[in-house]
């Protein structure tokens, strides 16, 4: 009786121990590809500053029906209204951010955000708007990393997505912009 109980217990243990475990690893390569796509869209496809593009006479009214060009899919899902909204917001902001990146007042930090540089060199009249732009951009960036993680069913990936973006922002930075290396020091690309 004791032996059979022991056997039963062993079988139970074995069955628990042999439960199939599926580890979902963070898809680093796909994340880099997705980051590159978003970053390039933001840096190169900034939309017009005005809503008027949809009634411009150079476009037929049928362009109104045209679909948002966001469907070419990398392996990571980037297709959620939240991601598209954040991307549009960052695209809209980018022309102004670019001015500050070009002037060296703002740089790409090593945490996937933007940061103020050379505060003393920024004319006082510009300081508040530079800081407000940085704050707005960083709010969007943080929300974007979380939104991508959520859209892929893994909210816990947000930190890794942010790290991936941090590297890709730096890699996609234009020559002359300031970027922060992993040790925290700033370098001009």
């Amino acid at each position: 009786m004791k032996k059979s109980l022991l056997l039963l217990f062993s079988l139970l243990l074995w069955s628990i121990a042999s439960c199939v475990t599926i580890n979902i690893y963070f898809p680093a390569a796909a994340a880099e590809k997705a980051a590159d796509q978003i970053i390039r869209d933001i840096q190169k496809n900034a939309p017009p500053q005005s809503w008027q593009h949809w009634r411009s006479t150079s476009l037929s009214w049928l362009n109104v029906l045209g679909i948002s060009p966001a469907y070419a899919q990398p392996d990571l899902n980037l297709d959620s209204p939240e991601i598209r909204t954040l991307k549009a917001s960052m695209q809209r902001r980018f022309p102004k951010l670019k001015q500050y990146l070009d002037s060296g007042w703002v740089g790409y930090a090593n945490d996937g955000l933007v940061a103020l540089r050379n505060r003393d060199r920024i004319p006082l009249r510009e300081l508040a708007s530079v800081e407000q732009l940085i704050a707005a951009e960083n709010r969007d960036r943080t929300a974007l990393y979380q939104a991508i993680a959520r859209a892929n069913g893994h909210p816990e990936w947000a930190t890794e997505i942010q790290s991936t973006f941090a590297r890709r922002w730096v890699a996609n930075a234009e020559s002359g912009w300031w970027v922060q290396d992993s040790s925290g020091s700033w370098q001009q690309k």
């Binding site: 006082l124 009249r125 300081l127 508040a128 708007s129 800081e131 407000q132």
Partner: peptide, 11 residues
């Protein structure tokens, strides 16, 4: 002179 009382800038 000029001052910044964030975010108000006064020249």
């Amino acid at each position: 002179g000029e001052s910044l009382y964030f975010p108000v800038y006064l020249p």
